[in-house]
Amino acid sequence: MLKLIQTRLKQGYRTSAFPRKPINLHPSYRGRPEINRDCDPEVAARCAEACPQEAIDAEKRRIDLGRCVFCGLCQQLSEGRFIRFTTDFRLGVAERDQLLYQGSLPDLAAHSKQHFKKLFGRSLQLREVSAGGCNACEADTNVLNTPFFDLSRFGIQFVASPRHADGVFVTGPVPRNMKTALLDTYQAVPAPKVVIACGSCALSGGPFRGSDEIVPLETLLPVDLFIPGCPPHPLTILDALLKYFKG
């Protein structure tokens, strides 16, 4: 008992003040990229050519943030002259097209479906479906339940049964072998229900795009909220959930 109290005192109170107070990530973190629209076309073309995700449109000076895995190669190749990653983690959007990014993202709170805010703004229960990811998105979603993020203080919970859920939260590129399980889970959620796609895989197939063994999520379910990243930072997920449902 004494040990319990000692450890408790040592550990102290650790929950972040976000979103009441802003939070700064380490400058190494690669969040929302900044695009230099006046960049030398040759540099932009070289980045587009080298991009492993083929996410860059050099002519339009555009990055598909749904495909991008934020690997940082374009920043390194262009020495920051074309693309530079900032520590801004706020990346969620309500339409897939909004991720065709030319330097700014629309205000998520203004684009979310208003009836979802009314229904789920004070209490949101989600059923997570891990569909073929690398377990990084899953791990960084799970981490929202640790004391630092403490997701439940916002009235948001990940629940065990789809019957108790208001929607599904999908990670992974959806392997053929997970298609039925994903659709069954979605079916089991009572309407009205929301679909959240989290991570590059769920948004575009991510690293696995082109594999015969995956079925793109957008061909299976109507997605309401898109959260880019590989994996998205827990704060990216938290920020997107708060803005979309409570913003």
């Binding site: 492993p52 990084a136 992974g172 392997p175 053929r176 690293p207 082109g210």
Partner: peptide, 27 residues
């Protein structure tokens, strides 16, 4: 259930994609 066809996919890809796929084998 998580089978994404990694081993079949890897030999078909341009080398620039390999590091990204390998990072996604198990995050």
């Amino acid at each position: 259930y998580q089978h994404r066809g990694v081993e079949r996919l890897l030999p078909t890809l341009p080398f620039k994609r390999l590091p990204i796929v390998v990072e996604g084998i198990a995050g």
